[in-house]
Design a protein around this nucleic acid. Structure first.
Lengths: 151, 151
DNA sequence: TTACATGCAAATTCTTTGCAACCTA
DNA sequence: TAGGTTGCAAAGAATTTGCATGTAA
């Protein structure tokens, strides 16, 4: 298993891009600074090695890494940026979502295993679980067909 | 099963609040406008009935509904507001997260069922799944103990 | 040498807040 | 009538963009 930096280096060169000090710093921060760092966390960590690095560079690098499958963005329910809402009527069945990364379409589906997963975590960690959020990301059938109209 | 508006009406009165035209419009929009509406979607939908409604009212109502368990916020990976990042090395094991709504602490855990869930969806819908994001929300053991120090 | 990347500052987008006016119970 | 709610406008926060300059290959 190769490291994040090695994989990134390979991809960057493969695309005709360049490995820079700043990109190395962002990659190092991603691995070392903390679990689930925010852009700001990464910026602060990188800053300790090179105080001239800029926040926008961190954002640009993060986007690039994401597009190339080297980081996975996570969206936790903080207080800010609550993007989408589902109305809830009491005891409505828990559902999950699929989101197409190409066209953005969101599809709901039910996941019988979810209840069990919640129970298992609750039992194992003594936590009280209020709700679960499961989203799959990928390419929907329609978008795949658009990509390969001949098949 | 009672409707969202009925449940909201009950809760509002129970808390000494008031049912207003604007709140009714937001609730109606939540049920009718589209799946997974954004605050903006709800605003636009509500506007069609009363063009004087304000976006900040929509946000305030949405927050209130969320605090009272009547809507569930969802966080999809759009282009904006990518809050947290996980580095990914190829074929790293898929993990899920628990986030305590009280203290904000995030715990990772593995979910053997995830692989199966992805495969099932892919097979059923012809989609290509790139990654999954599962987060449980609730109260962690520590925070529960703080709430009930006597038990 | 020549694109590609960067820093900087300004622009955007999304969300929240203070406050006087308004309206529901 | 009284206190919860609203609209408005301005403040905040997080993120993106344009452009001249710097730099890896």
């Amino acid at each position: 298993l190769t490291s994040l930096i090695q994989q990134a280096e390979e991809k960057i060169h493969h695309e005709g891009g360049r490995m820079t000090t700043q990109r190395r710093l962002v990659l190092t921060a991603l691995e070392n600074c903390c679990d689930h760092p925010s852009a700001e966390d990464i910026y602060e960590h990188a800053r300790q090695s090179d105080s001239s690095i800029n926040l926008s560079t961190v954002y640009r690098t993060l986007h690039w890494l994401e597009e190339n499958g080297l980081v996975s963005p996570r969206h936790f329910a903080d207080h800010r940026h609550l993007d989408r809402f589902d109305p809830l009527v009491e005891k409505s069945i828990e559902h999950a979502h699929f989101r197409c990364s190409r066209c953005g379409k969101i599809t709901e589906f039910s996941v019988p295993q979810l209840e069990k997963i919640k129970q298992t975590y609750a039992a194992g960690h003594g936590a009280q679980i209020d709700r679960a959020s499961l989203t799959l990301y990928g390419i929907c059938r329609e978008c795949q067909e658009k990509d390969n109209p001949d098949e």
